[in-house]
Amino acid sequence: MGEMIELTSADGHKFQAYAAGDPKSPRALVVVQEIFGVNRHMRDVADRLAQSGYYVLSPAVFDRAERNVELDYTAEGVKKGLELRAAIAESDVMMDIEATAAKLSPRPTGIIGYCWGGTIAWWGATKSKSFRAAVTWYGGGIMQTKEAVPNCPVQMHFGALDKGIPMSDVEAIKQSQPEIPVFIYENADHGFGCDDRASFNAEANKLAEQRSLAFFAEHLV
């Protein structure tokens, strides 16, 4: 079990982050939330990744719009999450991501994100130089900046059944970024890595997490 800590962005904004693992660990990860906040699932992900020897921080990026957000995986939760996401500027999100990375410096740090966080992890790779590796899980917004140049190695994961991220988009991303390993899980839908969703796919989640951890083990040295 981890704990909530407070961080401060460059503009003075104070926000919460869930911290898991040993603060003295030589390697670190930033785990970026879905549109449901730093809820039970995201804390569980952070705890699990920390068990592989990382100090993990999961920043509450919704704090700029509303604090202590923990939404359920319901239609109401989706609606609220989309409203909160729309209320926060990309530049402000990145300020909070940079502040989180700064808290983990100078140890080698990676970033991994899920859903909206998958897109933010892509921003972490392309708009920041604070990370040595980035992993994205079903990041729907990646398509919009698929031509961006990453500043670190990137790995991507998508579900073949994800109607929100059609395979045509994934193929376009692959064509724009031929050096990036892109994994597609044939029987997996959006959110296949979340055991609180009906779309959870234990087999795909296990394989994607193994690949993610192997990627970080290779690059966070």
Rank of each mutant, 00 (worst) to 15 (best):
G2R: 04
E3D: 04
M4F: 08
E6I: 03
S9K: 05
D11F: 11
D11Y: 10
G12R: 13
H13P: 04
Y18R: 01
A20L: 11
G21H: 05
G21I: 10
D22E: 09
K24Y: 02
R27D: 01
L29D: 06
F36T: 07
N39L: 12
N39G: 11
N39F: 13
H41L: 12
R43L: 15
R43H: 10
A46P: 08
D47R: 11
L49E: 07
L49Q: 11
A50L: 05
Q51W: 08
V56G: 09
S58E: 02
S58V: 11
R64P: 14
L71K: 02
L71Y: 14
T74W: 15
K79F: 14
G81M: 02
L84I: 09
A87Y: 04
A89W: 08
V93H: 15
V93L: 07
I97F: 12
T100G: 07
A101C: 15
S105L: 14
P106Y: 14
P106D: 13
R107W: 08
P108D: 02
P108Q: 05
C115I: 01
A121V: 01
G124K: 00
A125H: 00
A125E: 00
A125D: 00
K127H: 00
K127V: 00
Y138S: 10
I142M: 08
Q144A: 08
Q144H: 10
Q144L: 04
K146M: 11
A148I: 00
A148Y: 00
V149A: 01
C152G: 03
P153R: 15
G159Y: 05
L161R: 06
D162R: 05
G164R: 05
M167F: 04
S168Q: 12
V170S: 09
I173T: 13
S176F: 04
Q177D: 10
I184F: 06
E186N: 07
G191F: 00
S199C: 11
F200N: 15
N201M: 14
A202Y: 05
N205D: 15
N205S: 14
N205T: 11
N205V: 05
K206T: 12
Q210C: 09
R211Y: 06
L213P: 15
F215R: 11
